[in-house]
Write a protein that binds this DNA or RNA. Structure first.
Length: 332
DNA sequence: TAGGCCATCTGGTCCT
DNA sequence: AGGACCAGATGGCCTA
């Protein structure tokens, strides 16, 4: 049995398909469809022109619905299809044009949201953009990892944190994350030039146990790890923390980037995690930014990690990709 | 060249 | 009736 592709099947069965009469440039950049030029792919024009502007279509429009169509229609089961008069066709076409425009803008909105999500991921690379699916996976893992870090005292530099972060990711994305999260003394390899000296990263609590650094690790295309993304710390920068209780940091106050989604419930941060800065052997963090109490607290928990701890998210087994050991593969 | 990713069109369904 | 949402189909681009 031959299975026809959906569209072709429709084309053959729906003899009176309105598509065949459409002759306008429904979605050309110049059309009344208001396609944004910078997103428009020229390749689409030919496809639409072929579909919409064929001579057959024009002929059909001229001839009306005669001959073999009626024969086919009489044999077809189901509700009889209304004839496409010119007026109906016009309305249909206008509706379709509008619907297409809406759909495009809807998808653009979706992509914009995805782009926002990418921008707050712990690692980002200009040359290696995360795919949509990988962005969603990484976002989920990131949330899980941060939750573990907060609730379980897990270090953001621990192996468990990395494993949570990389669960179910593709190998390239895993490598990207590993490259971004280079920790320990060799971290300079993936840092921007101005970060390579002067600021010494904290000692890696896992040195000798696990390391995601590699002498041969290339600089970008691997991205950079932006610590300020931790718990949206970037948004908190510039605030005075000393006299605030921890939960205030999640209230979306001054400096919180605009967020047009539904409000998220306040994240509970146990107060013993967020304290005034104490000197820690693992502090300051590797990057040149003003650490927030939350960030500091995360660093203070470095000695309490458990390499073998299985977080509550280990049940996460992507249906198509079983969990695996993280074995970053670096390109030469 | 195959496969992955993406943008777009399209028709169906549900909701207001 | 019209809009939002969804999933299938299709073709372009890119990379291994």
């Amino acid at each position: 049995m031959m299975i026809k592709p959906y569209a072709r099947q429709a084309e053959e069965e729906e003899v009176a398909s309105p598509l065949q009469w459409m002759d306008g440039d429904m979605s050309s950049p110049e059309g009344d469809d208001s396609v944004s030029l910078h997103r428009y792919k020229p390749g689409r024009v030919s496809q639409q022109a072929r579909e919409l502007g064929s001579e057959d279509a024009e002929e059909d429009e001229e001839d009306g619905e005669e001959g073999q169509e009626d024969e086919n229609e009489s044999k077809r089961r189901g509700p009889k299809k209304k004839r496409m008069t010119k007026a109906r066709l016009e309305r249909f076409r206008a509706r379709r044009v509008k619907a297409n425009a809406r759909e495009r803008s809807r998808m653009h909105g979706l992509n914009d949201a995805l782009e926002n999500l990418r921008s707050i991921m712990p690692c980002h690379s200009k040359t290696q953009k995360l795919s949509k699916i990988e962005t969603l996976r990484l976002a989920r893992n990131y949330i899980c990892a941060l939750s573990e870090a907060l609730e379980g005292g897990l270090s953001t530099e621990s192996r468990a944190f990395m494993e949570t972060l990389c669960k179910g990711l593709s190998q390239p994305t895993t490598n990207l994350v590993a490259g971004c999260l280079q920790l320990g003394p060799a971290a300079g390899a993936g840092m921007r030039p101005d970060e390579r000296h002067g600021i010494r990263p904290p000692p890696n609590p896992l040195s000798g146990v696990v390391s995601y650094t590699s002498p041969g690790l290339p600089s970008p295309p691997y991205g950079t790890f932006d610590s300020t993304h931790m718990l949206h710390l970037r948004a908190m920068k510039g605030r005075q923390y000393e006299n605030h209780s921890p939960h205030e940091y999640n209230t979306g106050g001054v400096g919180t980037p605009p967020y047009d989604g539904p409000p998220t419930p306040p994240l509970s941060i146990s107060s013993n995690l967020v304290t005034k800065q104490e000197t820690s052997p693992h502090y300051p963090p590797p990057h040149h930014y003003s650490p927030s109490p939350v960030d500091q607290a995360l660093y203070q928990t470095q000695n309490s990690y458990d390499v073998h701890s299985e977080g509550p998210y280990d049940s996460y087994h992507p249906p198509h990709m079983p969990p695996r050991q993280i074995t970053p593969v670096y390109r030469d």
